[in-house]
Structures are given as structure tokens and as C-alpha cells.
């Protein structure tokens, strides 16, 4: 009797272990996916970077060809374009996003919140190609009419990208403001501080690490965005001399040229992807550092 029970429990144990093993594999797949992506991007991009040397990042002449020796491989203007577009979008999106987060966490009545939260989720769900389309038929003609030029420009990408990063900034900032201990707020109000004084001198400083993290992640979103930028930025490989001039970014240039690139040219595009990947890793690391910092 005892033997039989033991046997049965051992069989059950084997089944349990198999299930646990399968589930473990599922969980580890997220890690495996990253290594797979790194392996393939770097295996194609790294040899190219090593061959091209630092000129790849510092030269301004981008004349790709299929053979390495015939082409000119400088992505400096594209890199600068990515940075201009990203920082502009952050500059516009941060004040609006953080203010909206404070509103959502501290001021909005429940009924308003019930409308605003799903709206922000919808804003996050709108496909980037639809943002690009909206930019192309509304923002670009407006810029063309108001300021001249082609309309497809740095400014157009700022407008569209600042809208696209709003959900990232708002949702993470809102969470971090909500996570501020109740006692902070109650203490401040009990000391006679007004609602605005409490928000400004207690809530925002206490939530600052999360707010900073949200902005860094918004930067990641902006620098990695492809379709919308591709459609409204104009994609000229030169450093723009005004905010109404066209600009190109790493993402847009990869999307544009992958369709026909071969040989060294394709490797160069993978090297650009590698640069993007490294930038995103640094930003993610910074965001983690920021959100781990505790206010004392």
C-alpha cells in the first residue's frame, strides 16, 4: 500500500517536473530572444564597423554601394538627425506629458480619469504608420503653408513624435506619482500647504525618479520610431540648417535602403541597427538607474 502510494507520487512528481521544465523554457525564452537578436545584428554589423573604423561615426559622406571600397560610409549626419529629432520631441512632449500625469494622478475627478486613461491607451495603440499618415496630410501641408519649404521637416517630426511619446511619459509618470506614500501628501496638507504647494514641493520631488525614467524611456521610443519619421521627416542625409529643413534618422534610413541594399551596403545598415541597439540599451540602463534611485 505504502509502496503504491510512493510510486504514484513519484509519477506525479515526474509529470510536475516536466511541466515545470517546459514553463521554465517559456520564461527563459525572453532572455534567449534578446541574445538571438544581438547575435544576428552584431554578426552582420560588427565586422563592418571594424572595417570602416571610427569614420563610420564621424564622416559626413554617405554614398553607399554594394562593394565596400567603392562607397563612402559616414553616418554622422544621420546620427545627428536622430538626436535632433529625439531631443526636440522630448522637449515638446515632456512638459505636456508630465503635466498631464500630475493632472491624472492628483487632480482629475474619477469621471474624467475614466475617460482619460483609456484615451491614453488608445493613443499608445494607434499604429505609427497612422501617425505618419496624419502628419503627412495635416502637419506637413500646414508647415509648408506657414513656413515654406517642403513641409517634410525636423519640425514635422517633432510634432508627430512628441504626440507619440506622450503615452509613455504619462503612464510611467502617473504610476510614480501614485506610488508616493500617502503620508507625504497628508503631512504636507496637514501643515497647511495648499494643493498646488503640495504637488510642487512634495509630490513631484518625491516622484522625480519615476518621472525622469519616463522621459528617458520616451527618448528611447522617439529614437527608435521608424514609420512616422520616415513619412514626415523628408529623409535628406545632411545636417539640417533650420527646423523647417528635411532630416534623416537612423531608423528611417534603414527602412528606406533595406529594400535594395546588398553586400557592404546591407552590412552598413545592420551596423546602423547596431548603433541604435546600443543607444537603446544605454537609455534603458539609465532609466533603470533613475527609477531605482530612492528619494530620502
Amino acid at each position: 500500500m505504502a509502496v503504491r502510494t510512493l510510486k504514484r507520487s513519484r509519477i506525479k512528481d515526474a509529470k510536475g517536473t516536466t511541466i515545470e521544465l517546459i514553463l521554465l523554457l517559456c520564461a527563459v525564452s525572453a532572455v534567449a530572444a534578446i541574445f538571438l537578436i544581438i547575435w544576428f545584428i552584431f554578426s552582420e554589423g560588427l565586422p563592418f564597423v571594424l572595417e570602416a573604423g571610427p569614420q563610420f561615426l564621424t564622416s559626413s559622406i554617405w554614398l553607399p554601394t554594394d562593394s565596400f571600397s567603392d562607397g563612402s560610409w559616414g553616418i554622422f549626419p544621420i546620427l545627428v538627425g536622430s538626436l535632433i529629432v529625439t531631443f526636440g520631441a522630448i522637449g515638446i512632449g515632456t512638459p505636456l506629458g508630465v503635466a498631464c500625469a500630475v493632472f491624472l494622478a492628483e487632480i482629475a475627478p474619477p469621471a474624467v480619469r475614466r475617460v482619460l486613461v483609456p484615451s491614453i491607451n488608445a493613443l499608445a495603440g494607434v499604429p505609427s504608420v497612422v501617425y505618419g499618415f496624419f502628419g503627412l496630410v495635416v502637419i506637413v501641408p500646414w508647415i509648408r503653408g506657414q513656413f515654406g519649404g517642403f513641409g517634410t521637416s525636423v519640425f514635422a517630426s517633432w510634432v508627430i513624435l512628441s504626440i507619440m511619446i506622450l503615452p509613455t511619459i504619462i503612464s510611467i509618470s502617473t504610476d510614480s506619482i501614485r506610488a508616493v506614500p500617502r503620508e507625504y501628501k497628508e503631512g504636507s496638507l496637514a501643515m497647511g500647504a495648499t494643493q498646488w504647494q503640495t504637488i510642487r514641493s512634495v509630490m513631484i520631488p518625491a516622484a522625480s525618479s519615476g518621472i525622469i525614467a519616463s522621459v528617458i524611456l520616451g527618448m528611447g521610443r522617439a529614437i527608435g520610431e521608424t514609420m512616422a519619421v520616415l513619412m514626415v521627416a523628408g529623409n535628406a542625409v545632411s545636417i539640417p540648417n533650420s527646423i523647417f529643413a528635411p532630416v534623416s534618422t537612423l531608423t528611417a534610413q534603414i527602412a528606406l535602403e533595406m529594400g535594395y541594399a546588398a553586400g557592404a551596403h546591407r552590412q552598413a545598415l545592420f551596423a546602423m541597427g547596431m548603433v541604435l541597439f546600443v543607444v537603446i540599451m544605454i537609455l534603458t540602463g539609465l532609466a533603470n538607474l533613475a527609477s531605482r534611485r530612492r528619494v530620502t
Binding site: 520564461a27 527563459v28 525572453a30 532572455v31 530572444a33 534578446i34 538571438l36 537578436i37 544576428f40 545584428i41 552582420e44 505609427s128 524611456l217 528611447g220 529614437i223 527608435g224 520610431e225 521608424t226 531608423t251 534603414i254 527602412a255 533595406m258 545598415l269 545592420f270 541597427g273 541604435l276 541597439f277 537603446i280 540599451m281 537609455l283 534603458t284 533603470n288
Partner: peptide, 24 residues
């Protein structure tokens, strides 16, 4: 580690995932 990995994976630009998908 796994939660961190999921976070990184979610942050990789779609064009980079596309480059990987193309090659792989």
C-alpha cells in the same frame, strides 16, 4: 533577469527587430 529581459525586448526599436527577422 527575465523581467529585465522582457523590458529590454519591449524597448528594442521595431526596425531593429525587423533587421533581425530579415536575417534570421
Amino acid at each position: 533577469i527575465i523581467r529585465q529581459a522582457a523590458e529590454i525586448l519591449a524597448g528594442i526599436p521595431s526596425i531593429v527587430v525587423g533587421l533581425f527577422g530579415f536575417l534570421f
